[in-house]
């Protein structure tokens, strides 16, 4: 067996695909570097991410499975499930061995089906994050939000927020993956930082502008008052707003 280790990036994965074909490797397994375990009877090789190689694989796949196919591959990748490389690799092989037809809708192939399911899950999380991000205005004049999404959706929600909030600086920080996206009125940048304390805690509050707490309070007031008590249905409420998201939802915590 040939094990290819890559650097956890999508480009890295595509480079690994390139090299698997370049060196005509048999029985390939592509694994994230950090998840490597010692394997008997296996050839291990480290892949150095190279943009030109990744680009060639990207273009080839685009011609075979189209934008929809690449979209599903990227979304699957962002799901961060343990078995994604296996399915992605299987789909790549399946696509390359069927150059005359687009296999991305062929759900009789288990990995093709899996990709569409993972992509759907990530898509739902993306949509949820577009809804559940709650900005707070800091003294630096930056609208700041924290999230802990199930999947790594920051790269795919950036456009939505950039289109929407063009005249305010904003940052969305993924607490789970300790990186964020920051819009500086011109473009969106990736930022990595370690927060000693995050704004959710009391000590963070002095970093917020004076009116911020008042607007949060107004929003909570609105949320409370717009409920019709005679129709209360907690089960439905929780189904729509699962508990794991409450931590960062202004309307669900007490200021």
């Amino acid at each position: 067996m040939n094990i290819l280790l890559y650097d956890h990036t999508f480009e890295g994965f595509l480079t690994a695909v390139f090299e698997a074909y370049e060196f005509k490797l048999k029985q390939v397994k592509i694994i994230k570097e950090a998840l490597q375990t010692e394997q008997l009877f296996a050839q291990t090789r480290k892949v150095f991410t190279q943009a030109p190689k990744a680009e060639r694989v990207y273009q080839k796949l685009k011609s075979l499975i189209g934008d929809l196919g690449l979209h599903r591959m990227l979304y699957t990748f962002l799901s961060e499930y343990e078995d994604i490389e296996t399915h992605l690799w299987a789909v790549v092989q399946y696509a390359l061995s069927n150059p005359n037809r687009n296999i991305i809708q062929d759900f009789s192939h288990p990995s093709v089906l899996k990709l569409s399911q993972y992509a759907q899950m990530v898509h739902r999380e993306k949509h949820r994050m577009e809804a559940f991000v709650r900005f707070r205005l800091t003294l630096d004049g930056i609208y700041y939000a924290e999230i802990e999404p199930d999947f790594n959706v920051l790269p795919v929600i950036a456009k939505h927020f950039k289109d929407r909030y063009q005249d305010q600086k904003w940052m969305i920080f993924d607490q789970k993956r300790t990186y964020g996206i920051y819009y500086n009125l011109h473009k969106v940048e990736l930022v990595e930082m370690k927060f000693a304390n995050h704004l959710n805690k009391q000590e963070g509050l002095e970093m917020l502008v004076k009116d911020e707490k008042l607007y949060q309070h107004l929003w909570q007031t609105y949320f409370k008052k717009t409920t019709i008590q005679a129709r209360k249905n907690s089960r439905l409420h929780i189904q729509h707003v699962p508990r794991r998201y409450w931590k960062y939802l202004t309307e669900k915590f007490v200021v």
Binding site: Q166, T226, T227, I228, L236
Partner: peptide, 20 residues
């Protein structure tokens, strides 16, 4: 550089306790 962008897809930002 205005404020807001509507794509034609609605977003439910939250749900009341009666599930709306």
């Amino acid at each position: 550089k205005g404020l807001g962008n509507s794509t034609g897809m609605g977003i439910c930002h939250s749900y009341t306790e009666d599930g709306r």
